[in-house]
Amino acid sequence: MPDTTAERAALIDGAPAPGVKKTDPIVVADGVQRTFGGVHAVDVDHVEIPRGAITALIGPNGAGKTTFFNLLTGFDKPNHGSWSFDGKPIGGVPAYKVARRGMIRTFQLTKALSMLSVMENMRLGAQEQPGENIARALVPALWRRREQQITERAQDLLARFKLDAKADDFAASLSGGQRKLLEMARALMSDPKMIMLDEPMAGVNPALTQSLLHHILDLKSSGMTVLFVEHDMHVVREIADWVIVMAEGRIVAEGFPDEVMSDQAVIDAYLGSHHDTDLGDLTEEQQAELLDETQAEVEREEDRTDG
């Protein structure tokens, strides 16, 4: 394993605190506010997302994480505020253009296109298909070759996400977890600069979660920036380089995973009661150890009753 501590330390330019400057930010947001009626769903003074790293956005239910995603990606309009992506301001840019610039997001409530096949879902994620133009669509010779390339890439990704056997099925026939996987794979079709995942692990079984975590780490090593919302602290601790904590629309803390999770303000705002060492906080080895111990104890117990 490379020296992640040094690597992570190089992300920031200053001491960890809400709004801290990053050495190489890909997203910079300023004064972004969104209210629904009287509720300040998002009220972010300043935040920067580091390029080429995995950043986790955490916070209790209703903290404004999804709304913040919607704002950044052009799916919702703020009351005011400005933000830039890759050095260019993208406030007010329509969602489809944000996506074309290389910032692709997935949805908390999955949006698989049910009546299209899994393969068609994937192909739709590709960019620069000339056949998406109505006039060229009528002349297959103009788009067949690109379609071939797209299909190959899709097969590749589907295999990675263990969906290749489902390629020709309707997306409607996938399970909830499989839809999450499909949505993530589809988002990767365009080779984005940054991918924003809204609770990618929700409903995915533990074995697959592990392999998903590896995929995300792979994305990082291929140079992609990842921002993800996640409630499972175990996952956050395992892959995040940087953690941003939201509560009631504001950013209440930022820091390296281990430090943020022991930060009293964060524990108060968010982790609260479920931070008492539960299984999610233990590493796998610890879990295995604990299991062995319990089993041994049970056996001893049984021996005694037998004897």
């Binding site: 799916f75 329509p94 969602a95 253009k97 949006k111 296109l113 068609e120 739709l124």
Partner: peptide, 16 residues
């Protein structure tokens, strides 16, 4: 057809 199923999903994939 994607738009018929869910236009936000299609938008998120960069289609106008």
């Amino acid at each position: 057809k994607g738009i018929r199923e869910d236009e936000d999903a299609v938008r998120s994939l960069g289609k106008n």
